[in-house]
Amino acid sequence: MLDTSTQPTGPVTQVTGPNGPSRRRRRRDAKVAGQVPRHLRAHLTAYLMITPMVVLLGIFVIWPLVYAFYLSFFEMSFYKDAEFVGFDFYKFVLTDPEFYESLLVGLKLALMVVPTVLVLALLLASFLATLSKRVAAFMKTTVYVPAVVSSVVAAIIFVFIYQDEGFANWFIGLFGHGPVAWLNTATTALPAVAIPAIWLGFGVSTLIMLAGILDIPDSYFESAKLDGANFWQRTRYITIPSLRNVILFLLVSGLTLTIQEFQLPLVMTNGGPVNATNTPNLYIFNSFRDATPYATSYSLTAALLLFLVIGTISIVIFRVVSSEKSSDA
């Protein structure tokens, strides 16, 4: 990202010679003076660079979002005129106990998945950082393989694992435990869905953490080792504080992505049993099922409210884990 901290803010500093601004500069200033405002002149290139992206974002993201908010005040029909209903649908969604239950399920899932992934990724990345180049390259590829597996395929594989005669029940059968209906019992269904989510997610997180760890100057570790610090102390006092920004990024992105987890519960349990795995996106998807205009507008409003909820959670996390510039920038 562009580090603008060293550039002057406000009017461009004039290049001054012994007689004030040079002649060439004065002539150019005279030509440009009436056209481009002073404070934009130096950033013109930067603005030109980002214009295409801003235009695309405006057309495909900002405008549909604004229009969606506008539509959420109507009961939409493709065959009749839309009927203005004001905040009715917001009221309907906010008074629906199932909406809050689904948010709770999403949060529970995120609490199960994200810390586990972070811890696993940190341990694995620390281990990978100690390996030789060739072994590390091989390990990095292996660790990344789950990330390229389609989540639908992973869901189906885990459904087979959790079946009555599947691997999971065979395994606990070795300890004399009777078969458990993993995906059909309210208490075990969500953890059962969390496991493939962890398996799919920790590859990317490990590589990102590894990149962060490799950024930490070796001198820190060496001097710590000289002072007699063991692995856990080095991790606690050097690695984790230096990885603060990385952890923040993984926390926020992990949380927002996991709350929106959709394919895994859809394929494995379709939100059951009794909404135990009904994540918010699945709840919205299922509320789209009826052919009535009500269902269309309801899903739209629920999706917009979910957007607001996740945005709020992200802001809260940013405040709590306050980010600061790395001390070695």
């Binding site: 059909n184 059951g272 049993p273 009794v274 009826d290 009500y294 269902a295």
Partner: peptide, 20 residues
């Protein structure tokens, strides 16, 4: 009637069925 009605009743059946 909309399927939401049937689903509400069916959720009741499922929650009794599975002991919830």
């Amino acid at each position: 009637y909309p399927f939401d009605v049937s689903l509400a009743f069916a959720t009741a059946i499922e929650s009794v069925m599975k002991g919830k």
